[in-house]
Design a protein around this nucleic acid. Structure first.
Length: 143
DNA sequence: GCCAACGTTGGC
DNA sequence: GCCAACGTTGGC
């Protein structure tokens, strides 16, 4: 099961809204690489929910509950979205500033490609970020 | 098909 | 609010 990180500006769509809505279509991605990543997501994949611009920190974990389908907010029909479900908040939000202090996280796309809004996270990096955030994966589904 | 101009994102 | 990075557009 793959791991990801998705960004949202809390002004536009925040973690609180994700929690309130439960399941929410992840729409509005209009970047080729980000879209490719979206299409590669599979049911049960998990992603960190990152607040860009305001907060600049990982605040929660979401899970893919519907794989890529045409983004209803896109008239051209060229772009895709997935449905995300809130799994839970990260007990200790992990800030960008903190991530930047860690040499072992220097290769993160979050840092190397600051404008990419949907990116894969390597298992080792996922584990480090989970530890930093005080997040423990629920019973045995971490495969 | 190349490249300059422009717009957008996102950190600071 | 500013600026750097980078994606996209449009002229040639």
């Amino acid at each position: 099961m793959a791991r990801w990180l998705v960004k949202s500006e809390p002004d536009a769509f925040s973690w609180d809204q994700q929690v309130e809505n439960g399941i929410e279509p992840w729409t509005g991605v209009r970047n080729a690489l980000a879209a490719k990543n979206l299409r590669a997501m599979r049911l049960g994949d998990r992603a960190f929910f990152y607040h860009s611009n305001i907060g600049k920190e990982i605040v929660g974990v979401v899970e893919v509950v519907r794989e890529a389908y045409p983004d209803p907010t896109d008239e051209t029909g060229r772009w895709a979205c997935v449905d995300m479900k809130a799994v839970g908040p990260v007990p200790k939000p992990v800030s960008l500033a903190t991530i930047k202090t860690m040499p072992e996280l220097a290769e993160l796309a979050l840092i190397r490609q600051s404008r990419l809004s949907v990116m894969p996270i390597e298992p080792a990096h996922w584990a480090i970020l989970c530890r930093m955030g005080g997040w423990t994966e629920g019973g045995g589904d971490a495969a």
